[in-house]
């Protein structure tokens, strides 16, 4: 029967479309990251390169408050100083300290968060413990630097800002599907 056969052909085509769209859902994951990369948003976990020679604006003072949190892992995590006063364009280094309070080896990943949000566009980080995952042996203490610079293009009305890090536990069998936090 020709209609029945035409129907089956149609169903096959539509099934292929459905399966392809299921795959497309997953293809959106790398696509999303590519778009973020091209658009320059959301690259919180990558080192920035200082390409041009930026002049330090000594006429302005900025207060950067440092904040540290842990989420669900037995670590103690704190900045070595509560805040720093810096000039825009000045390269600064601050230290954080993390201590593994448990007697097992724990892997963690720090996720940064900035306040106000627009700081993300003007903050250049050359080095950060958040670029890689940190593995701490039982009771190990580690001091970790963050090297950053805030561009003078930061609007004048922003004088106080917060850089915050939260450590999350990485289970040993977790699969990295995001492609941003590359293990060492």
């Amino acid at each position: 029967m020709s209609v029945a056969r035409a129907n089956i052909t149609m169903m096959k085509k539509l099934l292929i479309v459905s399966v392809a769209m299921f795959g497309f859902g997953f293809a959106l994951v790398p696509l999303y990251e590519k778009i973020c990369e091209v658009a320059g948003v959301n690259n919180l976990l990558k080192a920035d390169a200082l390409t041009e020679n930026i002049k330090v604006d000594t006429s302005r003072w900025l207060t950067v408050e440092l904040d540290a949190n842990t989420r669900g892992l037995p670590w103690q995590f704190k900045p070595m100083q509560a805040s720093v006063r810096i000039h825009p364009g000045e390269l600064v280094e601050v230290m954080y300290e993390v201590r593994n309070n448990s007697d097992r080896e724990v892997a963690g990943q720090a996720i940064p968060s900035y306040s106000p949000q627009l700081l993300a566009q003007h903050l250049k980080k050359l080095e950060c413990f958040c670029f890689t995952r940190q593995v701490l042996k039982p009771n190990e203490v580690r001091q970790m630097p963050v090297q950053f610079m805030i561009e003078p293009s930061l609007p004048d009305d922003v004088r106080v800002m917060t850089i915050s890090y939260t450590f999350f536990e990485l289970s040993s069998d977790s699969v990295d599907t995001g492609g941003k936090a590359k293990p060492i």
Binding site: A20, F22, G23, G25, V29, G108, F168, V175, G178
Partner: peptide
């Protein structure tokens, strides 16, 4: 509809199979 099925599948693997599609800590 298949895209929704894919999304909730990712959610399911994030919940139970150690993937990190939506988990910031895992990238």
């Amino acid at each position: 509809m298949p895209v929704l099925a894919g999304t909730v599948t990712m959610l399911l693997t994030d919940r139970h199979f150690g993937t990190n599609f939506f988990n910031a800590a895992g990238g």
